[in-house]
Amino acid sequence: MLVGVILIVLGIAGLVVANISITEQKTVLDAGPLKVTKKEEKTIPIPTIAGIVAVVVGLGLVIIGRSRR
């Protein structure tokens, strides 16, 4: 039942937040005391169907967990 609740929360969060942005800092040049870095931003899309499936599966697990009690 706990897994179902977690899936519901994650599914709703996936539906509300369409993308996750991650900023990476990469070293371009490292020559002794001189260090040049570059910030690179990556965007990871969250498919809407994944959020819907997570909510539906979570609801199913919660219903099954309640009926077994």
Rank of each mutant, 00 (worst) to 15 (best):
M1P: 02
L2I: 08
L2Q: 12
V3S: 13
V3E: 09
G4N: 04
G4Y: 00
V5A: 04
I6Q: 08
L7Q: 01
I8Y: 02
I8E: 01
I8G: 01
V9F: 05
V9G: 04
G11M: 00
G11D: 00
G11L: 00
A13P: 01
A13G: 07
L15Y: 03
V16M: 13
V17E: 06
V17K: 14
V17H: 11
A18H: 08
I20L: 11
I20H: 07
I22R: 05
I22P: 02
E24P: 03
E24D: 10
E24N: 11
K26W: 10
K26Q: 08
K26V: 09
K26M: 12
T27R: 13
T27W: 11
V28A: 15
V28Y: 05
V28P: 03
L29M: 14
D30F: 12
D30M: 13
A31H: 12
G32T: 05
L34P: 03
L34M: 13
K35R: 15
V36Q: 12
V36Y: 09
V36D: 12
K38D: 13
K38G: 15
K38M: 14
K39N: 13
E40T: 09
K42H: 10
K42C: 06
K42N: 10
I44K: 05
I44L: 14
P45F: 15
P47C: 11
T48C: 07
T48H: 15
T48Y: 08
I49Q: 15
A50E: 04
G51P: 01
I52W: 13
I52E: 14
I52F: 11
I52V: 14
A54W: 00
A54V: 04
V55Y: 00
V56E: 07
V57Q: 01
V57P: 00
G58C: 03
G58R: 00
L59T: 05
L59E: 03
L59S: 04
G60I: 11
G60E: 04
G60N: 13
L61D: 03
L61N: 04
V62S: 02
V62K: 02
V62E: 01
V62W: 01
V62T: 03
I63M: 07
I63S: 08
I63R: 04
